[in-house]
């Protein structure tokens, strides 16, 4: 029974009556996502309010000279972040394919590796991990260039905003790996759709937050 399903067993949608006919978990995850809008809204607002208010460098979009006279380039690395953005976008594609594979398991058109939820769950988790790798690379290179969370307001608000997003990605990767583990152990099928669906909704939400961050933080000066 332990592995009978992933996620909370709080709702037995097939045995219990619900008013809307929808699953409790799905309503809860959407309410949660609504709540997350306010969390990231606050974080993004703070970043934007503090944009250009740093007293000392490094700056995101402008070159600056350190007190020692050394010239620094703008610190944001657009090519690398573009790559990681692309990876995260692709992870969303993998995620919908994973959900479709779980929902339609055994149906025609879902044979082979292309219809395997294991493949797509693994791919999604891997893409998430690669994104986190890019972020780790970005953070360490910033630290080498003299930007830490304590250096200036940009560092403070940048690391906090992207760090919160990264933490969400990390939680999502753990969630995906848990689903993958269950899938390998006993196989996920149509009756598990809801449990994969709520994970997918969370994952895509984390992706759309990044869509906003990429534009607001990286591309717009």
């Amino acid at each position: 029974m332990t592995t009978a399903s992933a996620g909370a067993h709080e709702a037995h949608e097939h045995t219990h009556y619900t008013t809307t006919g929808l699953d409790n978990k799905k309503i809860a995850i959407w309410a949660f996502i609504g709540s997350e809008c306010m969390l990231f809204g606050s974080l993004i607002s703070t970043y934007l309010v503090y944009k250009g208010k740093s007293v000392v460098g490094p700056f995101p979009h402008d070159a600056w000279t350190s007190p020692a006279g050394q010239l620094f380039k703008p610190i944001l690395n657009i090519p690398v972040t573009s790559a990681s953005t692309f990876v995260l976008l692709m992870s969303s594609l993998f995620m919908v394919l994973a959900l479709a594979a779980v929902e339609n398991k055994g149906k025609p058109g879902y044979e082979g590796w292309q219809g395997s939820s294991k493949v797509w769950l693994a791919a999604t988790a891997l893409a998430g991990a690669v994104f986190l790798g890019f972020q780790a690379y970005e953070f360490t290179s910033f630290v080498h260039e003299g930007l830490t969370i304590r250096t200036n307001l940009f560092g403070t608000s940048f690391f906090t905003l992207t760090g919160f997003h990264g933490t969400h990605v990390a939680v999502g990767v753990l969630w995906l790996l848990s689903l993958l583990f269950i899938d390998i152990k006993r196989g996920l099928g149509p009756r598990d759709t809801i449990n994969v669906d709520i994970c997918a909704l969370y994952w895509h939400f984390v992706d759309v937050v990044w869509i906003a961050i990429f534009t607001l933080v990286y591309l717009i000066k």
């Binding site: 703070t46 007293v55 969370i149």
Partner: peptide, 26 residues
């Protein structure tokens, strides 16, 4: 979520030395 964010900022200022509410840093 809004107070959560505000408290995280304060928490970071207190425990990790960030500059969210530090006037000298802007």
């Amino acid at each position: 979520p809004v107070i959560t964010a505000a408290l995280f900022f304060l928490q970071f200022d207190r425990f990790f030395g960030t500059n969210f509410y530090v006037v000298q840093a802007g």
